[in-house]
Nucleic acid binder design. Structure first.
Lengths: 213, 213
DNA sequence: CTGCATCCGGGCCGATACTG
DNA sequence: CAGTATCGGCCCGGATGCAG
């Protein structure tokens, strides 16, 4: 993208991260280093030449390093986490049902979950949930008061959710009731009642907006 | 811009605010409603048709309302303030000297000032500074522990800074010494010593990053 | 004069084919 | 698997026209 050529902090920032796809590439790299093919898969819709070109300019801008065939965020690139969080938070009200033509990747549930259940809250129950919403299963762990999301199936899940992502995420984040989630096509195996005790960090939730319902 | 077509909070947010110029238009509207011509002037480099088209889609997306010939942010548009702050903060290390081809508008000093001196801090001295850095003078008020920026000259300034914006902003935010600022072409009228007692809000500064030097 | 609409050249984007 | 090459199309930017 062309530079805005304005002596302004926001404009200079957008000169670096305002290009199409750049922040989504950062999203894909936030959990850890990724290979080119993994990035391609996590960025449905991007053209391969665009990904290659973006990665090069991001490297030149100090956002990304490449180690062999692995790409990783620099410290500076990781600093964009706060920007992604701000945009994601602002965009929360835009998240209705999944549109028919919208793609979903299973590892994307990490953001809504950790955004909804940030930090440590000892009152959260220990809970293991397997979510089968995308190409492959994901496991949501609540343990020691922290909520974590990991790829792969769970060894002994307390709960298994199978169905469209909006239904699974809606139920997990308490934006949908069990009935509403089922009406959207979610299949639930196990006892869903402990989910209700999985509460957002109270202090963090109070400080946040877009949290209604 | 085309939609990313990804069922992801970040992607949906970027579908709305990822278009070129959109966040800069929000920047211009944050202080209050503006007319079309004022926006054009505050967005050097934008083509008039682009501004018109952006304003229309921003209106359709619920970011902007128009009242006669005035454009204003909706509550939703104003919610992007946190996003701009996040990007601006991340971009702080990018702010070296002004490039020769970079444009500056005097009202842009509001962001670096309020970002550097946020909230209330009773230990701040009362101070009125006139800054002559762009097309027209701006007045920085420190009173009752708060720092405010207003357009227009000051009636009885304690200090007048005249010169390039990087020098003026650098001195005001303590990123440059008096000598460095003068070396960059800043002329100082009045006693600059009280500036040193204009300190960032201690609590806010500690919570912030990118604050070194 | 303000607030756009139209037109046009160029560059970036997106899809596909192809290569080491 | 990890890109490069190519090409059509759309969006962007600049100039100009025009209506109230």
């Amino acid at each position: 993208m062309r530079s805005y050529r304005q002596y302004c902090q926001l404009a200079r920032g957008l000169d670096v991260v305002g290009d199409r796809w750049v922040l989504l590439i950062v999203r894909e790299l936030l959990p850890g280093p990724r290979r080119y093919g993994e990035l391609l898969d996590g960025l449905p819709g991007i053209a391969t030449n665009l990904l290659a070109e973006r990665l090069r300019t991001m490297e030149a801008n100090g956002l990304v390093t490449r180690d062999g065939d692995r790409y990783a965020l620099t410290e500076r690139g990781d600093g964009l986490r706060a920007v992604l969080r701000a945009i994601g938070q602002w965009a929360a009200p835009l998240m209705g049902p999944q549109e028919p033509d919208e793609v979903f990747r299973s590892h994307w549930i990490e953001y809504p979950m950790t955004a909804r259940f940030p930090g440590e809250d000892r009152s959260r129950p220990d809970l293991t949930i397997e979510v089968r919403s995308g190409e492959r299963p994901m496991t949501v762990h609540s343990a020691d008061g922290r909520v974590r999301v990991e790829p792969g199936p769970a060894a002994a899940p307390d709960l298994v959710l199978t169905g469209p992502p909006d239904a699974a995420i809606g139920l997990l984040t308490h934006r949908l009731t069990l009935e509403e989630a089922k009406a959207r096509g979610l299949a639930v195996t196990g006892d869903p009642r402990p989910l209700r005790r999985l509460r957002p960090n109270a202090a963090a939730a109070a400080a946040r907006e877009g949290d209604r319902r």
